[in-house]
Computed example of a mutant assay.
Amino acid sequence: MSYANRGMSFENLIEHTNMQYETMGLAVVNKRPTPIRVTSNKHGRVTGFFEKPSTVDFDGTLAGGRSIVFEAKQVKLETRFELKNIEEHQVEYLEKCHRLGAVSFILVEFESLRTIYLLPYESLKYYWDRRQSGGRGTQSIPLGDFEVNAWEVKPGRVPVDYLPIVYKIWNLGAA
């Protein structure tokens, strides 16, 4: 694996990847801005606040017209992904899009391991529902489960080459 872009944040690396995908004519995927309302008071001081919860980090369209939505998470733990790192409204948004036929997933980078996984919405939903029922061991997804229920994303023609996995999982032909 090449670590030439190691200094870039995970989301910036994905944005760079998405720009390359767009240049290649494979997809148009954009970072969604967080909805913030900017206000000013009578003294001219500018302030802002989160207007409403954001949906997910990225959305767009694949070649052929299929929608794609995903959340990107970077974790420092080597052994698991804490489900508290994803918000309920984000899971709900992924579910809504999934039900309408979109390609929905999360990308999780285990930063210290320098490993990225694509976890399809269906797998995330299993762990999310299990968390909601409570109990010991339901608050996170162990790394070993990623190795079984997710797909490792390796660099290829782009730094975070997730599209070949998307095309394989969702039977979309070739990227």
Rank of each mutant, 00 (worst) to 15 (best):
S104E: 05
V108C: 08
Q90K: 07
S40F: 14
K73F: 15
N5H: 11
G25I: 00
M19Y: 11
P33S: 14
R136Q: 13
D145P: 05
S123W: 03
N85R: 11
P33Q: 09
Q90A: 14
N12M: 11
S9Y: 00
V158T: 05
E82H: 12
V108S: 05
L83D: 03
V103G: 01
Y21E: 04
R136F: 14
T23Y: 04
G101R: 01
E11F: 02
L62D: 03
V91D: 05
V160K: 00
A63Q: 09
K154H: 08
W151T: 06
P33I: 13
T61S: 10
N5M: 02
N149Q: 15
G173T: 11
I141Q: 10
V108K: 06
S123R: 09
N149W: 07
Y126P: 04
I68T: 07
T138F: 03
W151H: 13
D161Y: 04
I68H: 06
E82I: 11
E95V: 06
E122G: 09
V56M: 00
G173S: 01
M19K: 12
L100V: 05
H89W: 14
V158F: 00
R130I: 03
F146E: 01
N5L: 10
I141F: 09
L100W: 14
E22V: 00
E122H: 05
P35D: 07
R66Y: 08
F146Y: 09
V38P: 07
H98D: 13
K42Q: 07
L13C: 01
R99I: 07
D129R: 06
N12F: 12
L100G: 07
P53T: 08
D57S: 07
T138M: 08
L118R: 03
K42V: 14
G173R: 12
E152C: 13
W151V: 09
N149Y: 07
W151I: 10
I165M: 09
D57C: 06
G135P: 04
R45K: 12
L172W: 00
F10V: 05
M24G: 03
M1S: 14
Y21D: 05
G64H: 06
K154D: 01
W128H: 02
V160I: 10
A27H: 01
P142F: 14
I141G: 07
E122P: 02
I169Y: 06
K73Q: 07
R114A: 13
Y93I: 05
Q132Y: 03
W170F: 08
T17P: 02
Y126H: 12
E87F: 12
R136S: 07
T55I: 11
F110A: 08
V158L: 04
D59V: 13
I141T: 00
I169C: 04
L62W: 01
Q90E: 14
Y21F: 06
F110L: 00
K125Y: 10
R6A: 15
D145H: 13
T39D: 13
S112K: 13
E87M: 11
S67V: 07
K52C: 12
L172T: 01
G156Y: 05
I141W: 08
N149F: 02
N5T: 11
S104Y: 06
N85P: 04
Y126A: 13
G60E: 04
Y126R: 15
M19I: 09
I68K: 02
M8F: 06
L124Q: 00
I116E: 03
